[in-house]
């Protein structure tokens, strides 16, 4: 599998991803996040309480994931649905996290203006203890955001 080697395209996707995160959380979750930084790591490794993943296939391949702890995940889903967090069931949380990942990736693609890429349906994970690893040679860029002093991360592996 080949990732995205074109620097300007990578840059457009990362910029689009950042803009999409801010846009989706502001528009759908009625909240704002502050950008905390970015880092490049060797693997796409997820271990926070909730995660959502979307596969990119076609002319350009990769994976984009979101992750955060369960309280933040529940708060975000509560906000986008408009129901108190205590009223959410597991299906709501799984669906909501998946939908967040779906919207963020769709927004990235639209903002970067790339064609020839299909996005998979999202995969959502909610768990107390897990590690999820995507085996690929591609490095992962992590964008971190703070939401009420807790972290919301976006993992771009392409």
């Amino acid at each position: 599998m080949t990732g995205i080697r074109d620097k300007s395209l990578r840059s457009a996707l990362i910029t689009g991803l950042d803009a999409s995160v801010q846009d989706i959380l502001a528009t759908m979750a009625w909240t704002s996040v502050s950008f905390e930084g970015r880092e490049v790591v060797p693997d796409l490794l997820l271990s926070d309480g909730v995660a959502g993943l979307v596969r990119m296939q076609g002319d350009h391949e990769g994976m984009v994931a979101i992750s955060t702890d369960k309280p933040v995940g529940m708060e975000l889903v509560s906000r986008i649905i408009g129901l108190p967090a205590d009223d959410l069931n597991t299906e709501d949380l799984l669906d909501g996290v998946g939908e967040l990942a779906n919207m963020i990736c769709g927004g990235m693609k639209a903002k970067a203006g790339i064609g020839g890429v299909q996005l998979s349906s999202p995969v959502a994970i909610v768990g107390r203890e897990y590690s999820a690893l995507w085996k690929t040679h591609l490095k992962t860029e992590i964008l971190s955001y703070a939401l009420d002093k807790r972290l919301f991360r976006v993992h771009a592996c392409f």
């Binding site: 889903v77 649905i81 408009g82 299906e91 709501d92 669906d95 939908e99």
Partner: peptide, 12 residues
């Protein structure tokens, strides 16, 4: 197919 999205649309 997403119950959450149905709720989001309803709320909207």
């Amino acid at each position: 197919d997403s119950s959450v999205m149905r709720k989001i649309v309803t709320r909207g």
